[in-house]
Nucleic acid binder design. Structure first.
Lengths: 349, 349
DNA sequence: ATGAAAGCGCTAACAT
DNA sequence: ATGTTAGCGCTTTCAT
């Protein structure tokens, strides 16, 4: 392990220039400087130039805390995600942050790390920071932490998941079209024993995807056998175990209801030496880039992540402007690749 | 006049309780309340209880801006990453954020999205926010934005990459051991035409990995043929194109110097119908979870992400405490899987 | 159009 | 141990 010594900087400008310094240097009053910098009121061209020049020379940057303290808005929003390592949330975070920045809003990106306690700590941070708005993917559903944000009257939207009985507008995907297509796909391929790996029933996505699956099956006259349903928790481990269980019960196809569990199912099939798309069919969730690189490329139910993020920010902006906002559901769809066989009885690819 | 506007369906508490309210309710002076809440000075048990009780009843939460304005530290650090979608940075972000939270510090996670302009905008946000410290993965190297952070005297550390001539302590990985093992592995398998896909020469990681590769080859008496080096940019696309180019030049093995380019190389090999580990050997970079799920599981050079993150936070904490900090390099290592053939001339697996 | 001045909510220095 | 008070840097009246 190499090691390089680094000197502590010493010639650093300790006191940062304040609006007062800019006023002094430009020969203007503090109020005028503020007005020029914010464009909040008319100013003469002469003083505008003088102020801007002084600010530039001084390298002046307004103190966000002083501004927030006085003006009751901070120019920041918070985004609270359950797990930033989950590629779905990473992508969502990128979209939200980018859309927010386009509106001049900085994003405090908070990662609950699948931990309710950390979720609560971050909600507290968010409330202390007096952010202008909050976009969150709720973790679990028994949240007095969420109630507090509402009590604080901080504009908020839910992304990806919603919570019953909490009147916060949400942008979520509708699992119905995608799962309906997935069921069709599997049925056409001749499968009679299909396994489903659910998410946690404590999340709206877990419940709704399971419900959409059962509805799709019912629409084709099939009653879902509880034996062929494994209850997971959106983590890879539960996808591994769930698929193992379902395989033991003789399923010929598996539907996993989120990306991490899809990976888990893939891993179990690999471990058992199963030829996916031949011995076993597998349909995953979320169209992650890597799913085209897996063995084999995965047939998946795709969610419109970018639209969820963009729409979510617009909705939050509307709320911040005091407007009303209606929850929306964006459709999912099936992307057919090689983890599902092409015809009944015939091998895939 | 208080707002009489009717907000639909919400009876929101408009004015948040301040320290003054807590003081009034508890019958204590403001100063005492502050002391109790911060534990900054001794207080009597009786007043402590009274204050705490009043604060609880009121649902009081200190205003972070007021506190920061007055006390010159904000309890937040900023983490600036080039691309949060890159699983390497997502994992690093998680580790840093978690370590920071353990020290009572909230993390402002900023995503430059591989865009220099967005990088600069976030640096400005960071400076306005008067964060207590900054951990960043520098993007490119011509950064007056970075100089400004230094001029502001905000404690800072570099993670993953460093910038020459900028005296900021860094925690980066040492590509030498891993790449040396990778070269050994390939040479033992009998390869004579090995292709290397570099990162951008404008980043320390790009330069150092390339240099480590050449050194490792030189140590085995081999001069690297410039024809067999493709210059990429750490994006998947350049991995696809670079591997295509190298393949056209007749390489029998490819070494990619980051995870995204590894995926690109994998994709090109798939597209060409090459059997990886047989027709062509491939060694990737970073041990991402998905690399065990790809076709085939990838042999990779692994970086100790968690250590980089943890060490980085410790180093930043030290800097924030006014202490000196020494840059460190953490070793990489080879993880041997199925994308490299087992013996000269014999098929893999 | 601009200057003066009153705070925003808090901490810390100074009292007692 | 606790009360009092002066700001932190800024926006926003209120004058002019």
């Amino acid at each position: 392990m190499l090691s390089t010594r680094v000197r502590k900087g010493r010639c650093c400008q300790v006191r940062k220039p304040t609006i007062k310094d800019v006023a002094a240097r430009s020969g203007m009053a503090i109020g005028t400087v503020s007005r020029v910098l914010n464009g909040s009121q008319a100013t003469s061209e002469a003083s505008r130039l003088a102020v801007l020049e002084a600010a530039r020379e001084l390298g002046y940057l307004p103190n966000a805390h002083a501004r927030s303290l006085r003006s009751a808005h901070s120019g920041t929003i918070a985004l609270l995600v359950p797990d930033i390592r989950n590629p779905f949330f990473a992508e969502l975070a990128r979209v939200v942050e980018s859309a927010a920045l386009d509106h001049g809003l900085a994003t405090l990106l908070c990662n609950a790390d699948e931990d309710a306690a950390q979720f609560d700590r971050y909600v507290e941070v968010i409330r202390r920071q007096r952010v202008d708005g909050v976009a969150m993917i709720p973790l679990g559903e028994a949240h007095q932490a969420i109630d507090r944000v509402i009590a604080d009257a901080i504009p908020m939207v839910f992304l990806d998941r919603h919570v019953p009985d909490i009147a916060v507008p949400s942008v979520v995907s509708d699992p119905e079209p995608g799962l309906s297509q997935a069921v069709d796909r599997l049925l056409e391929a001749g499968h009679t024993r299909i396994g489903f790996i659910t998410g946690p029933m404590a999340s709206s996505t877990g419940r709704e995807r399971f419900h959409a699956y059962r509805s799709a099956m019912a629409a084709r006259g099939i009653d879902v056998d509880p034996e062929l349903v494994s209850h997971g928790d959106f983590q890879e481990e539960s996808g591994m175990q769930g698929s193992a269980l379902l395989l033991d019960r003789g399923v010929t196809a598996i539907l996993a209801s989120d990306s991490l569990m899809s990976m888990g199912a893939l891993r179990t099939c690999h471990a058992r030496g199963l030829r996916i798309g031949q011995d076993i069919d597998l349909i995953g969730f979320d169209d992650l880039p890597v799913f085209t690189l897996t063995d084999p490329p995965l047939t998946v139910v795709d969610q419109p992540i970018a639209e969820i993020g963009r729409h979510g920010v617009e909705m939050l902006l509307a709320r911040m402007a005091g407007e009303q906002a209606d929850s929306v559901r964006l459709p999912t769809r099936l992307i057919d690749r090689s983890s599902t066989r092409k015809d009944a009885g015939s091998p895939a690819r």
